[in-house]
Structures are given as structure tokens and as C-alpha cells.
Design a protein around this nucleic acid. Structure first.
Length: 609
DNA sequence: CACACCATGACGGGCGTG
DNA sequence: CACGCCCGTCATGGTGTG
């Protein structure tokens, strides 16, 4: 019914309407609703105490009298404006349901130790250490969690009525589901704890499992973020989920189908320039529809469940998994979550060479017939050692032109593992930094000089985008923004997105770039100057310091962001990490949540103006 | 000598595929 | 089930600098 709004390929992109806000409030279709509310708090926090009070005190008193808390009322008024009393009430009711569902008493002990709160504590701590009082967002989240206003709201009596006829274990299942746990989690817990386990035991088990897996932060409140507006709807929804789950369980298709997204094979996403079978149509969830456009990237082969979480947070947009081996001579399997149109994409020209032979012609002469590689493996942050290439040379020299199979196998194994190429008779070598630059689509010497060490060059390059791949996805912006764009670039690294847009011929008007590494910032600044950019480049070091106030300042000065790009750290996701592949909650990779946080704030600000 | 910076090499396992 | 892949981390030693 609202397929026009969501599905029709942005044919009439008109995101700057003022009534977006109402639509967003009336038809929340995902967890984004709660998240938006949290972010909303940030935006309004500064004003709520100063401006929201006196001017509309009647309205305030009205809702106070109904038993809602000041905080919620401020939030609701800010979001709906003062005029529309009905939608304010709607929002207040929604908030109340959210909070009731959020913090059932039995779970309190779990909540205290949840990874989410630990993370928040860490964040707050780091804010304090930095001497920056930029933690208003974190505080607001904590407030929302701890300060449940449920004394003013009583709901949930329907459950008893609706479920009284169910068998005991299903009742428990439903209780857990109503607390916000997934049916799958609840079921697993019941299997482990036995049929007689109490709800408290079950929730403890789930919490323990969650912490052990250190997966899915925000787990406790992510399920309540699913469609719900009043208590009854939520219960019905869970009853419905239960039925679906029972059906699946009967059919025995639960374990495979319900867990995780499947990687496409071949990994070409919605299509690549050289493939004729290009998908040009998809339906985005309502909550994902901009502005702004967003583009998020990370490694495709992350631990199980990571992409489900990422996708859920990014408004339920399904990731587009693409291997850059279809764009250049090296593999690079990545997932991209974005709300860009996918029709009429075009590649950067000339198309880069797509075999090692073409990309590195000098290696052709030395490439043995028994090395069948035509593509390189993923370019990583470290390279093979001299000692290894020496061992390989010595191993080969003993055998002349036709080494025995076991030697071939050893050499090939090492070549694949370290991305070695043939540079002389019996000589293999790791790629030079400028070769990596070329393969990734950067200008030659992009990372060279300016004080960066060779080791750090490899590291910066290994952490970067493949420019042609990203440019192909971003190419649709050229027609939409003929006069250029304002971009927020998070975790910019060496500026893959900036380079991609520049090579597409899309003018960069204002770029706010957040990057922790000084060396990388220097690289981007040099590139910016060398390419005679006409726009403004604003550099920040720390995403955690980028709060609602700063964002409002930026957006106020040049009118909002058209695009938010970011590839958050993959350290704790990548397969090469033997030490701390901790998943999305890892020390570095949890910065994904900052991408989401910032995107959501910008989204709120854009939709309120 | 203390210190910062840089290069080097040893270190498996989860997960997807055929 | 065997195989192949993977935006990495850490300790250590060398080198340069004051």
C-alpha cells in the first residue's frame, strides 16, 4: 500500500518534505523507532531543559497529569511539535510500552552486567578521560534503560488471557519472547535448562549465553524495537512469531533458515559491471529511506550473526555482498549496507585490469605454468617476509624447471597465503605498496611520503576500500547531486570514498571526515590539496566525540549531509585475527555502533528540518 | 642510556565451499 | 569431510635520535 514510498526506485526523490516526520512517527516499522527516540533525546537534550518548559507549560501539565514523566513528554513534544496533541499522545504511549517491555524486574540483575552497559560505561569513562563532556547521548541511553517509568503505566493483562490455554513450555517461551528475547534464544535456553526451569533461570541462562557469545549488544531491547505501538499489538506479534516458529520447527527447517544471512554465490551483490544479470529493483524498508543516503562497509566473512546485527541496526536493510575480484585483480569480499538506488549504476573508466597478468605484466615472464592463479587473494595489512621468499627460492633452486608436486604444493600454498607474485627466476615477492594502491584503485603514491612508514602504508591500504567497487555503488549519486554533495565520512582511512566520488566526477562540497590515524588524515589532506578540491575538508579524530551538538553545527552551516559513508573497524571480525576475533562487541569493531548512532542522529535532524 | 619508531616473524581457527 | 580463505596481533630486536 505504501509501495510507492518505499519501492519505486527513488524515481521521484523528494526527501526534503516537512511531513516526513509524521510518517515516521505513525508508521514505525522497525527497531529504528526506539533508536531514533534515543538519538532524538540527544538532539533535544540541550533544549529540553531550557526551551521546552515554559513556552508550552499547559501542554506539559496536561500530559504530566496523565502520569507521564517529564523526560518522555519533552521527547514527545520535541518530536511531534506542539500542535499535534494526538500524535504526542501516541508517542508517549509507545515510549511507555517500550520501557515496560524493556525492563522486566526479573531481568535487572542481568541488565546490570549486560555487555551493552559495560560498553556504555567504557564509553562514558573514555569521555571523561578525554576531558570532553560529550556524553549526553550515552547518558540519555542509560536514562532510558534505568529509569523506567512503569509506575504510571500498567499493561500486559492480555497475556494471561490469551495464553492460558497453551502448554507450560510454550507459555514460558512466550513469556521470554514478551520480555524481548527471540523465540530461538528462548527455545535454546529451555532445552538447556530443562522443562521445569523458572523464568528467572531461563533469563539468567540467556544472559550468560549472550555474554559468552558477546554478540548482539542491545540484545535486551532490540526485539522490542520490532513493530509495536501498543501493548496488544506487541503481544499479538509475539504470538504470531511463536506460531511461525512452531511450524518451522515441525518442518525441521528452523536451524538453517532462521540463522544468519546467506552469502551470495557468485558474490556480485546486485550486479557488477561485467555481468549482464543486474538487479535494478529492490524494496527498502520504510525506515531506511533517506535522507541522508548512507553507505556502510565491512568484511563479508564476519563471525556468524554479525551481519544480522548490523543489518538490524541499519534499518533492516539487507547487505549487498560483493567480491572486488569482479572489479580488479584482487579478491576483497565485503558487505555493503546502503540505501542507494541500484538502477543505472556505472563503473569508473577505464575498467581496471582483472587478472594478475594484466595488472602486473612484468610478472608474466616468471610465472610458472603450474601456478594457476589468475587473481590475487585479499590484500591485507601485513605482507610476507623476506625469509619466506628466500625459503621458497632455495626450495625451487634445487629442482630446475620442474619441481616435484610436493614442492609445488608448498610454494603455491605460501603464495596464496601471502599474495606473492613472481618477480624473477624462482623468485617470489610480496606486492609493493604502489602495486597495492593500483589494485585498490588509488592514484599512485597516494600513501607515499609525508612521513608514513612502509609498514604503515601496508596497514592503511589493507584497511581501505576498493575504489572501483565503491565507486560503482556510489555512481548513482551523480545524477541526483549534479552540483556536488556534502558528505560525512566516518572511519575515512585513506579516503576511499572521497577518491571514488572524485573519480566519478561528483563535486565534494563539504566533507566532514572522522579518522583516528593522523597518518591517514595527512594522506587525505594531501590528496585534497593535490586534486585542487574546491570544497571544505573538515577533519576530526574521534567518532566518539561527534555528538548531536557538533552535528547540528555542521549541518546548520551547510544544510545537512547528503551521504554518510563508513567502514567501521574490522579488527575483531576479520578471519586473519587469531588473537581477538571477538565479533561486533570487540574493542575496535564495536565502533560500528557509533556509525549507527551518528547516522541515526543525522537522520533525525534531517527529518525534523 | 633512554626512548620512540620501525621491521620482522611466529602465531590457528571459524566458516564457507565443492 | 577436506580444503582454502581471511581489511590481524604480539613480542622482539634493530636502528635512529636526544
Amino acid at each position: 500500500m505504501d509501495a510507492n514510498a518505499s519501492g519505486e526506485e527513488y524515481e521521484n526523490i523528494d526527501w526534503n518534505t516537512d511531513d516526513e516526520l509524521e510518517i515516521q512517527n505513525i508508521a514505525p516499522s522497525s527497531h529504528a523507532t526506539l533508536a531514533s527516540l534515543n538519538a532524538q533525546t540527544v538532539v533535544s537534550n540541550g533544549e529540553a531543559s531550557s526551551s521546552a518548559g515554559p513556552s508550552n507549560s499547559n501542554l506539559f501539565q496536561h500530559f504530566l497529569g496523565m502520569g507521564f514523566s517529564e523526560q518522555l513528554i519533552a521527547k514527545a513534544i520535541k518530536e511531534n511539535g506542539e500542535a499535534n496533541t494526538e500524535s504526542i499522545l501516541e508517542s508517549l504511549l509507545t515510549y511507555s510500552v517500550l520501557e515496560v517491555e524493556d525492563s522486566p524486574d526479573e531481568l535487572n540483575s542481568c541488565h546490570l552486567n549486560s555487555p551493552q552497559q559495560q560498553q556504555q560505561q567504557q564509553q562514558q569513562q573514555s569521555c571523561v578521560e578525554n576531558g570532553e563532556l560529550s556524553s549526553d547521548y550515552d547518558e540519555s541511553v542509560c536514562d532510558d534503560l534505568s529509569e523506567s517509568d512503569d509506575s504510571s503505566w500498567s499493561g500486559g493483562s492480555e497475556v494471561a488471557n490469551n495464553t492460558s490455554s497453551l502448554p507450560k513450555h510454550e507459555k514460558s517461551l512466550l513469556s521470554l519472547a514478551n520480555m524481548g528475547y527471540s523465540i530461538e534464544e528462548a527455545s535454546a535456553a529451555m532445552e538447556r535448562c530443562g522443562p521445569e526451569a523458572s523464568i528467572v533461570e531461563l533469563t539468567d541462562f540467556i544472559c550468560a549465553a549472550q555474554m559468552a557469545k558477546t554478540e548482539a549488544v542491545f540484545f535486551e531491547d532490540e526485539k522490542p524495537k520490532l513493530p509495536l505501538r501498543v501493548n496488544g499489538d506487541f503481544k499479538k506479534r509475539k504470538l504470531y512469531d511463536l506460531e511461525i516458529w512452531k511450524t518451522k520447527k515441525r518442518k525441521g527447517i528452523l536451524s538453517e533458515e532462521d540463522e544468519g544471512l546467506r552469502l551470495p554465490n557468485p558474490m556480485i551483490g546486485f550486479g557488477v559491471p561485467t555481468d549482464t544479470h543486474v538487479i535494478t529493483h529492490r524494496v527498502l524498508p520504510d525506515a531506511a529511506i533517506g535522507p541522508p543516503f548512507f553507505y556502510y562497509e565491512n568484511v563479508a566473512l564476519a563471525p556468524k550473526g554479525v551481519w544480522d546485527t548490523i543489518s538490524r541496526f541499519l534499518y533492516d536493510v539487507e547487505p549487498e555482498f560483493v567480491d572486488s575480484k569482479y572489479f580488479c585483480a584482487a579478491a576483497r569480499k565485503r558487505g555493503y549496507v546502503h540505501n542507494l538506488p541500484i538502477k543505472n549504476r556505472f563503473p569508473l573508466l577505464p575498467l581496471p585490469p582483472r587478472t594478475v597478468n594484466d595488472a602486473l605484466p612484468l610478472t608474466k615472464r616468471w610465472w610458472p605454468e603450474w601456478d594457476k592463479r589468475t587473481k590475487l587473494n585479499c590484500l591485507q595489512t601485513v605482507i610476507g617476509s623476506a625469509k619466506l621468499t628466500d625459503r621458497i627460492r632455495k626450495a625451487l633452486e634445487k629442482w630446475g624447471d620442474n619441481p616435484p608436486v610436493h614442492v609445488q604444493k608448498f610454494v603455491l600454498e605460501q603464495c596464496r597465503k601471502w599474495n606473492l607474485v613472481w618477480v624473477g627466476k624462482n623468485k617470489v615477492a610480496p606486492l609493493e605498496p604502489d602495486e597495492v594502491e593500483m589494485l585498490l584503485g588509488f592514484p599512485r603514491n597516494h600513501t607515499r611520503g609525508g612521513g608514513i612508514s612502509r609498514t604503515d602504508r601496508y596497514k592503511s591500504l589493507g584497511n581501505s576500500f576498493q575504489v572501483d567497487t565503491v565507486a560503482y555503488h556510489l555512481s548513482v549519486l551523480k545524477d541526483i547531486f549534479p552540483n556536488g554533495i556534502n558528505m560525512l565520512s566516518l572511519f575515512s582511512g585513506i579516503g576511499g570514498a572521497e577518491v571514488a566520488l572524485h573519480r566519478l566526477g561528483i563535486p565534494l562540497k563539504n566533507v566532514v571526515s572522522v579518522e583516528i590515524s593522523e597518518a591517514n588524515r595527512d594522506i587525505v589532506r594531501s590528496w585534497w590539496e593535490q586534486t585542487n578540491q574546491k570544497g571544505n575538508l573538515i577533519h576530526l579524530a574521534d567518532v566518539q566525540q561527534l555528538n548531536g551538538d557538533r552535528l547540528e553545527q555542521f549541518m546548520g552551516s551547510f544544510g545537512g549531509f547528503d551521504l554518510i559513508v563508513g567502514g567501521s573497524p574490522c579488527n575483531n571480525l576479520a578471519g586473519s585475527n587469531r588473537v581477538s576475533r571477538d565479533g561486533l562487541e570487540g574493542e575496535h569493531s564495536s565502533l560500528f555502533y557509533d556509525y549507527f548512532r551518528i547516522l541515526d542522529i543525522v537522520k533525525c535532524i534531517m527529518n525534523n528540518k
